[in-house]
Design a protein around this nucleic acid. Sequence first.
DNA 1: TACTAATCGAGACGGTACGTCTGGTCTTGTC
DNA 2: GACAAGACCAGACGTACCGTCTCGATTAGTA
Lengths: 199, 199, 199, 199
Amino acid sequence: MTDPGKARRPGRPRSERSQRAVLTAALELLTDQGLQALTMDDIAAHAGVSKNTIYRWWPNKAAVLMDAFADAISPRMGFPDEGDAITRLRAQVRRVAQLMSEPRARLPFVALVAASQHDAELATALRERFVADRRAAAHQLIAAAVEAGEFAPDLDIEVIIDAIYGALYYRLLVSRAPVTPDYADRLVDGLAPALLATA
Amino acid sequence: MTDPGKARRPGRPRSERSQRAVLTAALELLTDQGLQALTMDDIAAHAGVSKNTIYRWWPNKAAVLMDAFADAISPRMGFPDEGDAITRLRAQVRRVAQLMSEPRARLPFVALVAASQHDAELATALRERFVADRRAAAHQLIAAAVEAGEFAPDLDIEVIIDAIYGALYYRLLVSRAPVTPDYADRLVDGLAPALLATA
Amino acid sequence: MTDPGKARRPGRPRSERSQRAVLTAALELLTDQGLQALTMDDIAAHAGVSKNTIYRWWPNKAAVLMDAFADAISPRMGFPDEGDAITRLRAQVRRVAQLMSEPRARLPFVALVAASQHDAELATALRERFVADRRAAAHQLIAAAVEAGEFAPDLDIEVIIDAIYGALYYRLLVSRAPVTPDYADRLVDGLAPALLATA
Amino acid sequence: MTDPGKARRPGRPRSERSQRAVLTAALELLTDQGLQALTMDDIAAHAGVSKNTIYRWWPNKAAVLMDAFADAISPRMGFPDEGDAITRLRAQVRRVAQLMSEPRARLPFVALVAASQHDAELATALRERFVADRRAAAHQLIAAAVEAGEFAPDLDIEVIIDAIYGALYYRLLVSRAPVTPDYADRLVDGLAPALLATA
DNA sequence: TACTAATCGAGACGGTACGTCTGGTCTTGTC
DNA sequence: GACAAGACCAGACGTACCGTCTCGATTAGTA
């Protein structure tokens, strides 16, 4: 595990094992018992780790959730770039919807959004680390399509992105309706007339 | 809700003054110090009321917020019914946006949505008491417009409502962008091509 | 207590029934569930009386107990005055022991003594209304016997009374040993050599 | 009580400082403001300790007082064993009287006896930890004196002990008369004729 | 037969302490 | 020096009891 050639600092090295155990335990508790059971003591006990260790690597509970969420979504990044604009947009939205339908990603994310309502710093971090990326990708895709004449030239891009992502968040946080890839298709198709350039 | 002709049971009547004081204090603290400062002790002290009295009438903090919110929005119900469908829809959305831009309504609502993420009972109550009404009103308006041939016959109404309200909630909870009546107009106008029947 | 000859005010007269119910309920709760269950709310509910009524006639919980105790001992006052001094003393002590072995008298008394430890006013009232009488009676009996040459002339009367009554209270409050008339006999007989004049 | 050679379990050791602070604060508040002012919050604040810490080591307020009392009397244990039986008994009683005349011991003890009247567990603990010791010591002393022919052979030892200690408790709890070493002498001397073997 | 005034049951109220819980920090001894 | 264990502080939580207060409904005596 340790590189035998490098000059090892004295002292016990940081345990990757502990950190994985923390994130795993956090997700497990979140999935099994819900947001209520998510106390730091429980996470520590469940992970076989001391609270000290948690606070050594994360400043607070929200930060743990942040990593748990990053962890859950990390493998699923990147968008396909084939097909026409609508197809590529649909693929993007499907991907987000897919994520929101998996408990391992949905639950920490929901917890983060909830916590961010009374934690400005967290809100900023959440926006910068997760939300902004999607918005930027969507914006780029749409702007390019407008440029190419595929989408309407006077499109209010901000409104469109708000509407698409908003619909997903709305179902996630408020109406608690399922957010499936199928729904993603319905969503993009339903809004398509507002996107496409009229001949 | 209560039968005005009902047989009053004996005993000292519930003090309207206390209850008003509680709701007022809750809103005031929420507005001034934010969601963090909103402790039951503070509300009680600020309202000149004992904690006992609060817990006599509300089961928990969320319930107080629920009423505080109901209180803040109660006078602004009812939609105009003049003009074409788009105009009436725009009026509806403007009204909600207006509410979301007023701290007295926005703050308790945001707090409620956050709390409802780890309180299933509260989530249900919130949906049933506040969200369902708007959805129903919007649904009725849109369905009628479809019926009348004003809106596209194959409209996916659920998607449209998700998109419109979702955009508002998204800005409220996630992007923290302002939700003004002007934005409501942009939103409805931006989605209008997806609504209107093509000639 | 009220002067029957005074000009009676109009209005509903005091209900003897309620007051009896209060004392009965207090004693009953005390006997059945112990000192813990003795809340004013419980007494009121159990007596079918409003708390208001209790507080109209008694200033606080201790006062209720005071009357409950007075009630329980009232019929058993007065000492016999036959036989020699030891016999009469034994009769006195038996009577007190008898009282302490009956729950109806013991329990309110124990409660009063306990409460009087953090209520100076109550402590004074308790001493003046109940304790002083016995002491005075015992003092008189013993002093007369000393005078008559029956008891030792250099008797420390205060010490003797402390010892006799102290033994009873000690068993009542601390060792929780039974305080029966038989024990009263053992007590007086055991101390008799300290009382009697040596020939 | 604890095995000094035992395998210490890991973790931060119990803070002796905190515990001393709690007991000191409890005694101080008790002495200064009386039994009423003795709230757990006050003790915690006064001791610079969190309530949590108090409840970690003591189950309730009575238990704190129990230790506070043990603390106040701990240095004064053990009886002298010189002189004749009456002298040694007098020394014992003087010692207890001495304790009862010092606020630091008297006040927590009085509070404990009061509380034990509605707390069976506490009553047992109080008897077993404090009362039984004195009784046993006194019993042993008296029984030995009987055996040695110094005290009367038919002595009712239980009665004698009840009378001696009862007198002290009676003055402490009921008559509130001072319990001084001088009084202890008067007491033992007054009862001496009941103890000594008649020639 | 009204009128008057004190009583009553019911129960809401302010105040205050309780004992519990959680988040985040600090202190040991061990690896 | 990282770690497990767990003690620690701060402070909010929801509950319990006390003694006070308002209601509307009785219940005498008075007019």
